[in-house]
Nucleic acid binder design. Sequence first.
DNA 1: GATCCGTGTGGGAACGATGTCACACAGCCT
DNA 2: AGGCTGTGTGACATCGTTCCCACACGGATC
Lengths: 346, 346
Amino acid sequence: MTMERRGPLSRSRRPTIKDVAEAAGVSRSTVSRALTGRGYAASDVRERVLRAAAELGYVPDVMARTLKQQVSRSVGVLVSDLRNPFYAELAAGASREARERGYTMVLADTSLSAEAESEAAEALVALRVAGAIVTPNSPAVSTYLSSHGIPVVEVDRQFAAGSTDGVVVGNRVGARTATAHLIELGHRRIALFIDETDWTTGYERYHGYLEALGVAAIKVDPDLVVSSGWDVADSRRRALDMLSGPNRPTAVFAANNVLAEGVWRAIGELGLRAPAEISLVAFDDAPWMSMVSPQVSTVSQDTFNLGATAVRRLDERIEMPDADSVTTVLGVRLVTRESTAPPPMI
Amino acid sequence: MTMERRGPLSRSRRPTIKDVAEAAGVSRSTVSRALTGRGYAASDVRERVLRAAAELGYVPDVMARTLKQQVSRSVGVLVSDLRNPFYAELAAGASREARERGYTMVLADTSLSAEAESEAAEALVALRVAGAIVTPNSPAVSTYLSSHGIPVVEVDRQFAAGSTDGVVVGNRVGARTATAHLIELGHRRIALFIDETDWTTGYERYHGYLEALGVAAIKVDPDLVVSSGWDVADSRRRALDMLSGPNRPTAVFAANNVLAEGVWRAIGELGLRAPAEISLVAFDDAPWMSMVSPQVSTVSQDTFNLGATAVRRLDERIEMPDADSVTTVLGVRLVTRESTAPPPMI
DNA sequence: GATCCGTGTGGGAACGATGTCACACAGCCT
DNA sequence: AGGCTGTGTGACATCGTTCCCACACGGATC
């Protein structure tokens, strides 16, 4: 196998605007005007320039242009974990909207590591991106990017509400609705699986859960609130513990798709029959939830749209850097499937 | 809600190397040498420069650097559809490997559209990326990028074998193994669901299927080979047709995760009992396959590694542009779960 | 004392595109 | 004839960085 000989065009250096100018017999300035459409250019000259550019396969150098104009047409997107369908779909939405608005997308998977996150943020600054979208793990990213004059939109989670734009979903109302759904079915011992309860998304979902219990005058049992790690294995382990215990709950609300998967696996392994013996309701409608049996009831959010909306917001912010910051809250919807039913009679 | 006042630092323009030079009382050249480590710089001077840079929050401008050096540290990644877990995982692997090697990643979702694909390719040229990884839909992308001197690695699918590097999996052997597995169980009427049979991946899987049938001296029934579209809905429809027909197959080999989902849904909707009444084996181990009941047997490929390997290959190619092109074939593994069993007795 | 090192440092020309400015030309008015 | 306008073009400085080159300095060698 041998590398094919490259065309004559590419062996030499890439064509620059100067090459186009010479080929068309005009100056660099004229080429620039003809191609960008800014400023005068006689139609026959424009014609000639366009032809020359096409013939040479000329593509303007974004680096040089950005350097000169001091503003690029790319946005940075920082997500926690592309392997999680939630973030993948978020990124897909961002990608489509970015393309539609003429932005290129620089994407980094921050792998839930603070180090990777700040490293990636620094790369975005170095790249002089026009703006950034982040699913932050700490307030640091937004602060850092903002301090370098880069507009930021926090998505899914929001640390810097009030000083930074945000696009989130109705976490509290979603969690409240999910919990209320279980209560309505007759459940009283409802466990909550959640990653953390102190910040933004986790905080809201936790409080949504508390509110629903409060309304029904159900006392919160701290043993039923498990603050699990971020991966399936951990959540599964914790669920195995809780569900094989003596006084197990009759229902579980798993506050995201990863935790839900862990709980779901534990239920299966313990041979518990859902929803007859235990009900499960999740947050985030991952694809598997509508494929497994019983299908999992969940609070569904339009994740693709979440990403797209964030890019829209960012674009607006780039246009109007000094407008007041806004937080957009997208709606959620409880999808009741087969995993929730009244608790077993004792 | 009001935008927080930005720090004094950012209100004015971003600090440049010149600002650092003035703060440290040296020339721009010296700052450059001190920060990059190329060339002389007395240790006390270096110290002073580093401190000044840190104090100002200086981050070198990648645009300017790239413009000068004529080589960037970013790679382009073009995938078909981020919402498909296959591509998401591929991108995740690429992302991690890119980060480890000091590349930033420009990602575009080409949405299975040829137009978006070539648009994205042009953007990569404009960005002067150091290299690109693509899951191509046609030979055009690789040709185009190569003609602009951009090293390309084709991943998953390969159109330009011999002239472009590729990283693929053992599609033919995987398909053969999956089909042979069904034959071994006693199946004779084995349907194939596949997206296309003319190019690269689809071609290989198709021929793997044919080979396995050939070895067992089973005549190919063209009615059992359905070249479905690319989405779940289409595949489901085709599967409903075929499986509700008079002379249905006893087993289905679905050549990718999307088609498998369609077939799986159809099986469920028709109330067919798998594997008692129909066996199913897939290609690509999507998460849901090990969660549903019965769990789906499949040809598993290490998709994350596929992405990571592609970046590794690309990096090597960037280092040695004139070496012979190589195609890396990663192994696959048949994972037998619960969806395959001997055909029903007649 | 002239020359030659090695060690540092600064000046300045690139890289490719943009856009301001000056200017050239034709046609028209005073 | 001189001035003006409108149309079209080219020279040139600029963006932030790198890196080649020149050069300065102290010490060693002839």
